[in-house]
Design a protein around this nucleic acid. Structure first.
Lengths: 242, 242
DNA sequence: CGACGCTTTGACCCGTTTCAACAATGGTGG
DNA sequence: CCACCATTGTTGAAACGGGTCAAAGCGTCG
């Protein structure tokens, strides 16, 4: 039990809220699940689907996106280990967007029934899950701000700050470095910019010695300067200690 | 009881989910509240606040917004009667954004304790509230798509489609007309455009005979054409009948 | 070694912003 | 009931951020 993949979820719940009671922790760890390795760029859930299970990220990066009739793809969120990107499918039957892997990933599928039983048996856990979805919404709000009010340079800086803080909260950073398998094309789809302009802006961030970013590893050279450039204020992430 | 302002909330819950059982409906209508008339452009909750009550819109338009350090204002959502824009404050103590009136409005304040008691006593209502917040999140996602992937013309068209459908669901439209007290400056703050360009795009929508919009009333002249121009697909609103 | 995916570059173009007025509109008080 | 003022809406011209297109470099992995 100590090394169950579900510990990722426990750690996440405790990062956003307060510590879990032993009984609560056990109830979470007792959730039945099936593990699955998924290759990169593979849709886990598609727009229009009616899932009967939720997907917990154990390892790797996922994202949610919507396609427009004109072929444009808009990524609306990135997801790192410990998160349940399609928790909403418990209450919103039909998916209004797709969920896909960015990198080769390990995910745990948990049946809706099991989630519902957990929520009923442990209402406090239910509250925490609800809270997770509200933090999700807070991040969406900040993304609206990002695409609506920041220029390209700040937009990309902001995305990197967000990823860094999210990963740090679940212990997936080493110093100011973190594994970041996201391509510039995906950054473009997430920020509403062209890949060409993303590339130039990333080079500018590098040139200003704010970041290093190559071969899937991003290192923040000057966090304060990066956050200033991004107008980043971490409160919206609603992390317990910061 | 029949004409309690809380009927707005009942109607809203039934628009998004299925019909309420009599006992559930009663429990909602028994919520203690205090009514308040609020003038236009008045902050109901500010960024950084820790509210102890929720705000139910009875009459008028509200919006949520975030300010950036550089003075930019980004509106992240509009709210019409029947909605509880700060329901999240039940679980996220500190506001990461502000809530303000667009027009003179009537709102009902409901204490967090009362909301919590209702949710515990009527878990099904709790589920519906959770669902409301998830629909909120779905709308945020669509706004990310809007600012990220659509041009000015489509962006504004999309906003109008959304308002129309939301208002229609709670019975606040007359034909294809609805009261829309939003100014072009507010549309600009919501879409990430300049007021000048909003103005030109609105004129284009008028010129193409898709809408009429003056003196606080918006009439959609050709809903199909407007939705096509906006690439609008109403599923994300998760309304019961459409 | 070759192929594929990702990054990088240059040149040109266009949607949108900015600035700076000016015109309507509507609410207020005398 | 009209004069006044503050919002809101409208216009034109010039500048700019970012988009588009097309091609070339570069890593990595079979």
């Amino acid at each position: 039990m100590l090394h169950s993949p579900l510990n990722r979820l426990v750690r996440k719940l405790e990062a956003d809220g307060r510590e879990l009671a032993p009984a609560e922790k056990e109830a979470v760890l007792r959730l039945p699940f099936t593990l699955k390795e998924v290759r990169a760029d593979h849709d886990i859930v598609r727009q229009g689907d009616r899932p009967t299970q939720c997907c917990l990220v154990i390892d790797g990066f996922l994202c949610r996106y919507k396609m427009l009739p004109d072929g444009e793809r808009q990524i609306v969120s990135f997801h790192v280990p410990g998160e349940i990107p399609d928790l909403q499918s418990l209450f919103l039957g039909k998916m209004d967007h797709a969920l896909t892997t960015i990198s080769p990933s390990t995910v745990a599928f948990i049946a809706h029934e099991a989630m519902n039983a957990l929520i009923e048996g442990q209402p406090k856990i239910g509250r925490l899950f609800w809270r997770e979805t509200l933090i999700d919404a807070a991040i969406f709000r900040e993304w609206i701000v990002n695409t609506g009010s920041r220029d390209a340079y700040a937009r990309i800086a902001h995305l990197l700050c967000e990823l860094f803080h999210k990963l740090q909260a679940v212990g997936l950073t080493k110093g100011t470095s973190f594994g970041c398998p996201i391509t510039q094309t995906e950054v473009a789809d997430a920020t509403g910019l062209s890949t060409v302009h993303v590339n130039r802006s990333v080079q500018e961030l590098r040139g200003n010695r704010l970041i290093e970013w190559e071969r899937g590893t991003c290192t923040i050279l000057d966090l304060q300067a990066l956050e200033d450039a991004a107008m980043f204020e971490p409160e919206y992430l609603h992390l317990a200690h910061g």
